[in-house]
């Protein structure tokens, strides 16, 4: 129904319908409130039930608008959205170092739109992404029947795609790895919003192995149909830090600092509905330090 509305009446009609759909789901689907509660109860501790309900509505409305805009991009074309790449010169300067570039976004704003804006860079962009059955939505380019504007690396592929990512960097290209979602092996524990979460250290390990700089990027909605991509932080990982996961914890912590600043400024644009704070089941003892 949303796709039809977008085709007939553009974004506004879909936004209007969204107000009622999100209200219904927030009020009558406990699972929707539960999924947003992992983050909200830590971002807004001590809120009462009415305020928590309102928070849940606002967060769900935020992701709803992102989904509509993503469909608008695919169905009506990129000219219907304004995506600004703040920090483009900074990213180009990092790429000019010739050692590749590791981009680390998070599930905030509309990262897929951000990926489309990265096509302005003079380098191929590869994204580590795992497509699952029952994904929430389609990628924006699939709405228009187009091909992806970025190369996709499957973390379920050979050695978790690590060799492919290494190859990308060795060719001076861009690899993009979500900083707030574990895909494959290799995690470190870092406090996020006051409690420990497990985060991947592969972006920092790849940077250490290749000398590539790391740029933490956050795409966010600036208004109706408007998005900006912010380079929140540049992380320099020393070369050859080795195999121990602990060596990479300070760099994952730098990512989290940037993410905490982002959610302080944009509390309703954090869309990682996975329970990042769930207790970790102890792993089998490994040889790693």
């Amino acid at each position: 129904m949303f796709y039809a509305l977008i085709r007939l009446g553009g974004r506004r009609g879909a936004y209007a319908l969204l107000l009622f759909v999100v209200a219904y789901y927030t009020l009558f689907r406990p699972s929707v409130r539960a999924r947003s509660s992992h983050y909200l109860k830590r971002r807004f501790p001590g809120r009462g039930a009415p305020a928590r309900l309102w928070d849940s509505y606002r967060l769900s409305l935020g992701i709803g608008r992102i989904l509509v805009d993503r469909a608008v991009l695919g169905i009506l074309g990129p000219e219907r959205l304004k995506v600004s790449l703040a920090g483009r010169e900074e990213l180009e300067a990092l790429l000019a170092e010739g050692r590749g570039l590791v981009l680390v976004p998070a599930h905030v704003g509309c990262w897929q739109l951000a990926m489309s804006s990265l096509s302005a860079l003079d380098a191929r962009v590869s994204l580590l992404i795992h497509r699952e059955e029952g994904d929430l939505d389609r990628h924006f380019f699939e709405h228009g029947g187009g091909s992806a504007p970025y190369h996709m690396i499957d973390p379920a592929g050979y050695l978790g795609g690590t060799l492919e990512m290494l190859q990308v960097l060795k060719h001076g290209e861009v690899v993009c790895i979500m900083g707030d979602r574990v895909m494959g092996s290799g995690t470190v524990s870092v406090d996020f919003l006051g409690q420990p979460v497990q985060l991947p250290f592969s972006p920092y390990k790849l940077a250490s192995a290749t000398g590539a700089p790391v740029a933490v990027i956050f795409p966010y909605q600036t208004g109706e149909g408007g998005y900006a991509l912010q380079v929140a932080r540049v992380i320099r990982v020393p070369e050859h830090l080795g195999r121990s996961s602990e060596a990479y914890r300070p760099y994952a912590a730098q990512f989290v600092e940037a993410l905490e600043r982002f959610v302080a400024e944009h509390p309703y644009q954090f869309f990682n509905f996975f329970d990042m704070w769930a207790p970790v089941v102890p792993a089998e003892p490994s040889r790693k330090g």
Binding site: G160, T162, R243
Partner: peptide, 22 residues
């Protein structure tokens, strides 16, 4: 899988061979 990254680095360090073709 992340050890593969380390192995690529070690092969380069000890044998001077850069594995670019994955």
């Amino acid at each position: 899988s992340l050890d593969a990254v380390e192995l690529v680095v070690l092969v380069q360090k000890h044998f001077g061979i850069e594995i670019k073709d994955m």
